[in-house]
Amino acid sequence: MSDKVKVTIDGISIDVDAGTSILNAARQIGGDIVPPAMCYYSKLQGSGGKCRTCLVKVSKGSEKDPRPMPKLVASCRTTVMDGMEVQNITSPEVVEARKGVVEMLLINHPLDCPVCDQAGECHLQDLAYEHGSEATRYEFERRTFDRIDIGDKIQLHMTRCILCYRCVFTADQITNNRVHGILGRGDAAEISTYIEKAIENDFSGNIIDVCPVGALTDKTFRFKNRVWFTKPVDAHRDCPTCSGKVTLWYKGEDVIRVTARKDEYGEVEEFICNTCRFDKKKTNEWVIEGPRKIANHSVISANHYEQLGPPPVIRKNPALLEANKEQFERSTKL
């Protein structure tokens, strides 16, 4: 086991493969200590490091070089070293810095959640709720852009964008020619398909799924319904271009939206093609597998009355088990 390295995050140790990032090591532990990530996307090469919400403090560099790192580091792009000790929610400095980042992300965000289709599955909403402060100190006009149609199925509402670059990486990496990038600089930077050229590609719809906010929305779903009123169901079909594994979102009898299957960190399991996403909206075109489980913290799971289970690490770690005894008993009671 020579290629395993030991890392301790907020006092919880885990052995991970060498070359794993701190964020992924934290995800292997799970629970509260996972830093939030707005721009990192494990399926996209080169993503991460930009939003700065995943900042953590490295209080001990490694076994060989125990010096702490002088600045907070982006956990998604910092690889673990043997014996590294990381502080996330146990460091007031990190909590404060993260609060600052959330505030920065929100100062130019329109906060139009009541009319935004992403509301309910928006990472920025979750982030702001968990890590932000209750009020803003920003008293100036917010930056706005006109809405742009990227093809006939996708709409870009740049005003809501947090410039995570995920869609740019997606367009770069899973489609074969790049027609999509960033124009402008600083807070005038914008996602663009270079003079509004439509992305003509079978997989362009995936940029909707990777968008953490409501900047890229599905025009076939816009203003149809709130996500928490719809029922997610796993389904698949025999698709010649993609894996065909999707989540159908039902409203009553009708499929009103098709997305890829997202895991608990909001990352898709497999990218799907535009035919599956936009054109196949009848139940008889799909093989239904069963209800899709959405992470408990999501509003989509509200009223689904599932047991609130403690994260697996608390179940396994005796010290934490003791500390969370009450909650553990409550949640393991049948």
Partner: peptide
């Protein structure tokens, strides 16, 4: 600095403009 920020990471992109205002 507001004008010259590249806009890649959020604290600098948003914060420089805020300070300037």
């Amino acid at each position: 600095y507001h004008h010259e920020s590249c806009g890649q990471c959020s604290p600098c992109r948003e914060g420089t403009g805020w300070m300037e205002k």
